[in-house]
Write a protein that binds this DNA or RNA. Structure first.
Lengths: 210, 210
DNA sequence: CTTAAAAGTTAACGTCATTTATTTATGGAT
DNA sequence: ATCCATAAATAAATGACGTTAACTTTTAAG
């Protein structure tokens, strides 16, 4: 047989990304054979080339989808914590860490992509990456309005903040010797340590809520 | 020809690691063909299997050598700064960042190894990794003796410290859009921000030197 | 000398990514 | 209704690599 019936008109592009994310997750490695992706989608490997220039393009699409999902998660927390910006800094970081620990391989693809992919940019230079950073900067700004980090350069603080959270996640992610709970505890502990340092800056400030 | 003369008794094991580090560096990717490694060493690909179980074993050896070199660098700085522990925290971090930015691919292999390698441990669970962490913890401890971070849990601070520096390095490393100077400036800025937060903890403390 | 182990080499195999050549449904024009 | 050009897959072919198998030759011991 060649071209299948119109019945199964299921956009291969989207399904490929979706299935690849699953396969990559269960395999724990983004080095997944294209034939397996094709099989999961329900087509043959060369068929994928009609939707992606090559395997790298598929992985890049998957990476973008990762930033999409991360943004969705963080945006939801931001919405929920609208009235408590300092609390958002903590809860947003928790959510970020949880996303990373729940999707370790996807997270690695997002932040440590193999050079093959040719994505030689900051995570925040993509649209969704930028929006994730914007959420953080906004949280910092509103926290500052309430007395934390008085006089601090927010972009500078933001990059340090992200560095710390990303670093903690990144260091704990690979460790197969830790069970999920231990990874989470260790990561949260770093976040808490960071939050405490920031909390101190607002402690003696009359504006700080806590 | 088969077995070469005893004259060229050049330990293939070490040379392979050495040459792989070079190749990986100039290629910007640790996905280097085994035949190229062999050629650089001066033998054929299958010959490498007499010294490494497989390609992963070679990469693991290379990773260990990376931790070796990182430790050497940090130990030298520690030695030089023996009288100024707080200064060591900064200079040691600078040295760490410089090592990472100078050896981006090796650093990625050390801290974001492909799961294939099966190194599912903390960086600091290897001997040299542990020693790098020990240098940091020692710097923190002596800084605390001089009035910084009063009452703080040092292991906790240490992990946050490493997370921040590693995170900053890690985020800036991939960015091919930045020239080396810009990467260095951005990374150093994060380190400086962190150091300033720590400096504050000692500012009003009579013991703190600065 | 003989010979067995050591250490390579060449040749062969298997797994993938990717390309080429074919096949067949689809939708509009006659 | 029928025919045809195009779109979209498929099957078969290619090529790069990691790895293993089957020889070959140096080395060192008896």
């Amino acid at each position: 047989m060649a071209r299948p019936r119109k019945a199964q008109e299921l956009d291969i592009g989207r399904r490929a990304v979706e299935e690849t994310i699953k396969l990559v997750a269960q395999r724990g490695d983004f080095d997944v054979p294209l034939t397996e992706v094709a099989q999961a989608v329900g087509c043959t490997a060369p068929a994928l080339y009609g939707h992606f220039r090559n395997k790298c393009a598929l992985l890049i699409a998957m990476r973008d989808e990762g930033f999409n999902r991360l943004y969705e998660v963080k945006a939801a927390v931001s919405e929920r914590m609208r009235s408590d910006p300092f609390g958002y800094l903590r809860e947003g970081s928790y959510a970020y860490a949880r996303f990373a620990l729940d999707n370790p391989t996807l997270y690695r693809l997002m932040f440590s992509p193999p050079p093959k992919l040719g994505v030689g940019d900051d995570p925040w230079s993509s649209e969704n990456g930028r929006r994730v950073l914007a959420l953080l900067l906004n949280g910092l700004k509103e926290s500052q309005d309430r007395g934390y980090l008085p006089g601090a350069d927010l972009r500078r603080q933001g990059l340090m903040f992200w560095s710390t959270v990303h670093g903690a996640v990144s260091l704990n992610l690979e460790n197969q010797a830790m069970d999920p709970t231990a990874k989470w505890d260790a990561t949260r502990d770093v976040i808490d340590t960071l939050m405490e340092m920031i909390a101190v800056t607002g402690r003696r400030n009359p504006l700080a809520g806590s």
